[in-house]
Design a protein around this nucleic acid. Structure first.
Lengths: 338, 338
DNA sequence: CTGAAAGCGCTAACAC
DNA sequence: GTGTTAGCGCTTTCAG
């Protein structure tokens, strides 16, 4: 391994000067600077992060905390895309990102222990509060956190404007003449599920439409198979007075819901209009192509990285900040006029 | 920050003994061991990885190298699930995993530079060889690598048995009476695309069926929209003598292909049978539910981690090893007898 | 503008 | 069994 001592020898200066050169300090003569860089290049020098971190107490390392459950977390199309943008932006700013988990070697350990062990400077939280007991420790530690899923008091949160998205979906349906609009809600235990649900209620209220509980179904998870179950339940509950449209909280669930409607003989959109939420890569390729609400995952991911880094670096940020990212209606073919 | 010196003071021993205790060395008296652990506990001690790494030259850090292109990489359902299993298994073995990228701070840097900078002990490659120029450096360095996508000479590879999977798909179709079987192939530049294509050719050959080039279409990417394009092309090429079944290399592509067939008035499976490849979370919820070939991503991910760690730790492994993970036919509703 | 020296927290001989 | 000591590679005062 080539060190700054090797470079110093070749460049004819001291290790301290080499260090200064690499850290872009002001007081280094251009000539020696060049000699140092030349030597570094020819020797194939790479700085050693461990040594640097030990000396400076700065690791340039961020953690991401995903649900370790089946079917959610990094495997979820929404979060994997956020993660991608997060890590890309973090990289631009000099930070690397590391997966957090509940084990250090063969022993169970807390997330917090893991953070401290690796000297993580900040953590991206992409887990719901139902995992609270475990993550409570990291929230109340001095590690900087931002969330892209749940809302944790006093921590920055970057999520879609679910109210806005819901309004976009429902106004569109209303505009098409729909008055009997059902809602397949995602778990109300999640912020997204809950906010959409309340927005749905708000909407009906604002239009003077009555809330028909037969038109409301809550899924128990964010998983495709929930769409089939929920649709079956919805059909059963409202058989004597079917809705003409349904607003579904997650595209993957909308897929299976559509398949279920179709297998029951309903045509989409002729017999029933559907609007989803998420706009995943596949949404445009369902049959019919799914009209949905787009979440801006690029902005969410980048903004989460920026916010977290600002928190780490200048601390000038209001830690309780809540950033709402605008959504967008994507009109495709799953809705029609009633 | 609490260090082993603090513990030593409280436990009434020397830092060296504390270190030994934490590393489970043999020669430590049980009584002092307990005293040390107690002190550590009460002081809230967490070992410092940077210091440890600096002293031992072991970072317990693995890197993952994903395509940074749109639409592939970590965002691809197949790879995100492999990554999840990889990182979970690595965690059990004491290794953390870090994303590799092409930039260190604000300057472009090679992947290899990044590896060395962080002291990564091994890397999981999930990128095709088309990115060769960049990753060639890491392949020819002394960093241990395993691949789960492309096959790199001299490096362990853990991928599905694409030949087997293709045979399962085609034998099934054959069994149902299909003789005019088309193939929408994924890019032949990828191992998966290529091997499936050749297996398809083998199959036809083994059954004495002639190869009809009008039945073969290659997509230019692993992206859903390719399914629509490919289907249009297939239909156009073979309009005077349509296939009765089509084998499609990637479920996300099969989705859009199905939608396209349906929008052209074809019923699935009555008019055309479809079998996909991958068995993603959504495959069972297409309409009709997609018959496909399942790839065992749990095994691939875990096995990649195990192999990489073996390479790092005991070096007793044949580095050219190629592990083929068996596939499985999942019969659903997108195929019928001719 | 440059260098000497101490130290970040931990490990690994080696001596006791 | 336990402690002393000398680093690991880098940064950072503080003199010069």
């Amino acid at each position: 391994m080539v060190t700054i001592y090797d470079i110093a020898r070749v460049a004819g200066c001291s290790p301290a000067t080499v260090s200064k050169a690499f850290n872009n300090y002001s007081g280094v003569n251009t000539a020696t600077y060049n000699k140092i860089m030349e030597a570094a290049e020819s020797l194939g020098y790479t700085p050693n992060t461990s040594a640097r971190a030990l000396a400076t107490k700065k690791t340039w390392l961020l953690g991401v905390l995903f649900s370790e459950d089946e079917g959610t977390g990094i495997t979820h199309p929404h979060f994997s895309e956020i993660l991608q943008n997060f890590q890309y932006r973090a990289g631009e700013r000099g930070y690397d990102v590391l997966f957090l988990n509940k084990r250090l070697g063969n022993k169970e350990a807390s997330y917090l222990k893991h953070c401290k062990y690796r000297g993580l400077e900040g953590v991206l939280l992409a887990v719901g509060s139902r995992y609270n007991s475990e993550i409570q420790c990291v929230l109340s530690s001095d590690i900087k956190c931002v969330s892209v899923e749940d809302i944790y008091p006093g921590k920055p949160t970057i999520i879609s404007d679910y109210h806005m998205g819901t309004m976009q979906a429902l106004e569109y349906l209303y505009f098409l003449g729909h008055r009997k609009i059902a809602h397949i809600a995602c778990p109300l235990g999640s912020v997204a599920g809950r906010e959409r649900y309340y927005a749905y209620l708000d909407f009906l209220n604002s239009k003077g439409l009555e809330v028909n509980h037969k038109y409301i179904v809550e899924t128990s998870e964010y998983a495709p198979e929930e769409g089939s179950k929920a649709t079956a339940r919805l059909l059963q509950q409202s058989w004597d007075d079917l809705p003409t449209a349904v607003f579904i909280g997650y595209d993957d669930i909308a897929f299976s819901a559509m398949a279920t409607f179709q297998s029951q003989g309903f045509r989409i959109p002729e017999d029933i209009s559907i609007v989803g939420f998420d706009n995943t890569k596949l949404s445009g390729f369902a049959s019919p192509a799914l009209t949905t609400i787009d979440q801006n995952r690029v902005t969410i991911g980048q903004s989460a990285a920026d916010t977290l880094i600002r928190l780490i670096e200048d601390k000038s940020l209001d830690e309780g900040i809540e950033i709402r990212v605008p959504t967008k209606l994507i009109v495709r073919n799953s809705c029609t006029r009633v």
